[in-house]
């Protein structure tokens, strides 16, 4: 087993372990923390593939922002009482079947694509510098549109959260 394979196995174990734990824990906060572990593992996976920018962005956005957002949402809405329902819902078998079918289709498509058979370069072609230059030149318009969209969402959220003044 090479070092790269060993690292991949470790990262995969963290991602899968975190994901399974996120589903299995009965306490919502525990689930959210396990999800954060899984997301951090995903970032490590990107890094082990030499995709620095994506890896750090994953860490910054998902572990830093989304995980905190989920935790806040849990705390602000329902407290931390453990859920009373059983771990597996009655539709468990159907869900597992659908998941397996989706996985089979995806695996078949990925294995048949050209990406897998191609020789994997040691360092990825787009470096952080190139990604930045692309975003600021060719892809500037999509970036701006996404920025505008997020700003609109932010303002909308602020308006929704704003307490209405009682009519005087």
């Amino acid at each position: 087993m090479t070092l790269a394979a060993l690292i991949f196995a470790l990262v995969a174990a963290v991602i899968l372990g975190g994901a399974v734990a996120a589903m299995a824990f009965r306490n919502l906060v525990h689930s959210a923390l396990a999800l954060a572990v899984s997301l951090a593992g995903l970032a490590a996976g990107f890094l082990s593939l030499h995709a620095q920018f994506v890896g750090f962005a994953q860490l910054l956005v998902y572990v830093g922002a989304v995980a905190i957002l989920i935790l806040f949402a849990i705390l602000l809405t329902r407290g931390d009482e453990p859920g009373g329902q059983a771990l597996f819902s009655p539709g468990f078998l159907t869900g597992a079947g659908i998941a397996l079918a989706v996985f089979a289709v995806l695996a078949r498509v990925i294995l048949a694509s050209r990406l897998v058979s191609a020789e994997i370069p040691l360092a990825p072609a787009p470096s952080v510098r190139e990604i930045g230059q692309r975003m600021m030149s060719e892809d500037a318009l999509p970036l701006e549109v996404i920025g505008l969209l997020l700003t609109v969402a932010l303002i909308g959220a602020a308006i929704l959260a704003l307490r209405e003044k009682p009519p005087s």
Partner: peptide, 19 residues
């Protein structure tokens, strides 16, 4: 290559720890 980005990315875990 993205040292500054790395710095802010790992800093994100601080909030999680405090929580």
């Amino acid at each position: 290559d993205a040292g500054v980005l790395f710095f802010f990315a790992v800093g994100a875990a601080t909030e999680l720890s405090v929580f």
